[in-house]
Simulated assay, not measured.
Amino acid sequence: MTKEMGSSSLEDLCFHINTKIANVKKCIQLRDIGEDESCKPMLHKIHYKLHFVHGLLNKMELIIKQQEKLKNLLKEIQKTAERDQEAAQHLLEHIPPYLPKPTKSCITVPAGKQEGQKKAVEPKKAKKPAKQPIVIKEVALITTEEFKSIPAYLKGRITCDQINAVVTQINDAVEGKYKILHQPLKSMSVPVRNLYHRFMEEETKDTKGVFFIVEADIREFTQLKLDKRFHSILSILRHCQRLRELRSSGLVRYIVC
């Protein structure tokens, strides 16, 4: 067994020495080629190509570094986009019910047709300018900053969401009332016409040009309970200058500021 191992080691040593000798011979041959005039043009071409390849390798190295930087930047952008997507999904799943309608401060209602409008079969005349849509003023929502500034004795345990939910219902009542007021009388049913006449009776010289509702309108157009909490919220809305009260003839009118 020992003889076999010794023989193998000696063969490996001989192979190693022979390889080294062959390499030295190749180096001597290559050195001698440089002295050969017929080989010099070829050596110049090889040198030029090696220089060209070296330049390409340097460019490739720069491009790889730029690509690595771009890859890292894209990863950061992807992480940011994923965070934004998660935040947007959270907002989508938790939309507050009291968000304002498309128009922030008013609602437009198309004006009714003029009574006695001429039929289409009559000769066409120059068209009169279309009537401007009627603007119905709304109560603006309470912001988070405003809510923080409301005195504690007014707020009690009432939350900002509860206040804005009432604001939305009040706006529904204002919209319902003034849509009826701007309808042509001929198009009204009997119950709607009775509402119209009540609205007109509640008008005074002090309500000219303003939008207001009374508690009867809140009962008519909303599901709100006119309880103690509701009146506490009205006090908050007066404090925040969203509503003001006008009392006359035993009736409280809530005017939109």
Rank of each mutant, 00 (worst) to 15 (best):
E4R: 10
M5K: 14
S8W: 02
E11H: 08
C14V: 07
H16R: 12
I17A: 11
I17D: 05
A22V: 03
C27A: 07
L30M: 15
R31H: 08
G34F: 13
E35W: 05
D36S: 09
H47F: 10
Y48M: 14
H51E: 15
V53D: 05
L56T: 00
L62M: 11
I64F: 08
L70P: 01
K71P: 01
K71Y: 12
L73W: 00
L74M: 15
K75N: 11
E76F: 00
T80G: 03
A81I: 04
A81N: 12
R83A: 10
D84N: 12
Q85E: 10
Q85S: 13
A87N: 10
A88P: 02
L92E: 08
L92F: 08
H94E: 02
P100H: 10
P100W: 09
S105M: 02
T108Y: 14
E115A: 07
A120H: 05
A120D: 08
P123N: 06
P123T: 04
K124I: 10
A126I: 07
K128I: 02
A130G: 04
V135I: 13
I136T: 02
I136V: 14
K137G: 07
E138L: 15
V139W: 03
V139L: 12
T144C: 01
E146Q: 15
F147Y: 13
K155R: 15
G156D: 03
R157G: 02
T159N: 03
I163Y: 00
N164W: 04
A165D: 10
T168V: 04
T168F: 12
D172F: 06
Q183S: 15
P184Q: 13
R193Y: 15
R193A: 13
L195E: 07
H197S: 11
R198A: 08
E201V: 03
K205I: 05
V214E: 04
E215K: 06
D217A: 01
I218R: 01
F230H: 07
H231N: 13
S232A: 15
I233K: 05
S235L: 09
S235Y: 02
I236E: 03
R238A: 05
H239S: 00
C240A: 11
L243N: 01
R244Q: 13
E245I: 06
E245S: 13
R247D: 06
S248R: 15
S249Q: 10
L251C: 09
I255M: 10
